[in-house]
Simulated assay, not measured.
Amino acid sequence: MTTITIKDQTASGNILNEIRIKVENERTTLKDIITARVLSEVNSYNENKPDIFKGLIQPSDTERTLNGFRVKKNKNIDAEQQVYVALDAFLKNGYFVIVDDEQITDYDQEILVSPETEISFLKLTPLVGG
Results as ranks from 00 to 15, higher is better:
N48K: 11
D32Q: 14
T5Q: 12
I104P: 05
V85K: 11
D51M: 12
S40A: 15
D100W: 06
K22G: 08
M1N: 09
E26Q: 06
F90Y: 15
L56P: 03
I98A: 00
L127S: 01
E24V: 07
V71D: 10
T29G: 05
N43H: 14
S44V: 00
V38G: 01
D100C: 04
N25L: 04
D88E: 13
I21Y: 04
L122Q: 15
G130F: 06
N74Y: 09
F96P: 01
N46T: 01
V23E: 02
L122K: 05
L122T: 05
N48P: 02
V99Y: 01
L16G: 01
L39G: 07
E102C: 13
R70N: 07
G94N: 00
N76R: 05
N46G: 09
I21H: 02
I77E: 01
R27A: 02
E80Q: 14
T105I: 13
K49R: 12
S120W: 14
V99A: 09
S40T: 13
L127V: 03
I21G: 03
N93D: 15
T117P: 02
N17M: 03
Y84L: 13
T105Q: 06
G94A: 00
T125P: 01
V113R: 03
I98T: 04
V42M: 02
K73L: 06
S60V: 03
E118L: 03
K54R: 09
K54P: 07
I57G: 02
E116F: 08
D51N: 13
I98K: 12
I33M: 09
Y45R: 09
L127E: 06
L39R: 15
N25A: 11
V128N: 08
N43G: 00
R64W: 11
G129F: 01
I98F: 12
E116R: 06
K7A: 07
S60L: 03
Y45N: 11
D100L: 06
E116Y: 07
K54Y: 07
I6L: 13
S114K: 03
E41R: 04
V42N: 10
V71L: 02
N76K: 09
I6G: 10
P50F: 13
N43P: 04
A79D: 10
Y45K: 08
E116W: 00
E24R: 09
E26C: 01
P126T: 12
T62E: 04
D106A: 12
L112V: 10
G68F: 09
P50T: 05
N17L: 06
K22M: 12
I57V: 15
A36Y: 00
G68K: 08
E63C: 13
D108I: 10
S120T: 10
A89W: 08
V99Q: 05
N25M: 06
D32K: 09
M1G: 15
S60R: 10
I57E: 00
A11L: 12
N25V: 03
S60W: 05
E26S: 06
G94H: 05
S114Y: 00
I21E: 03
I34G: 09
D32S: 13
E24C: 07
I119Y: 04
V85C: 06
L124N: 13
I98H: 06
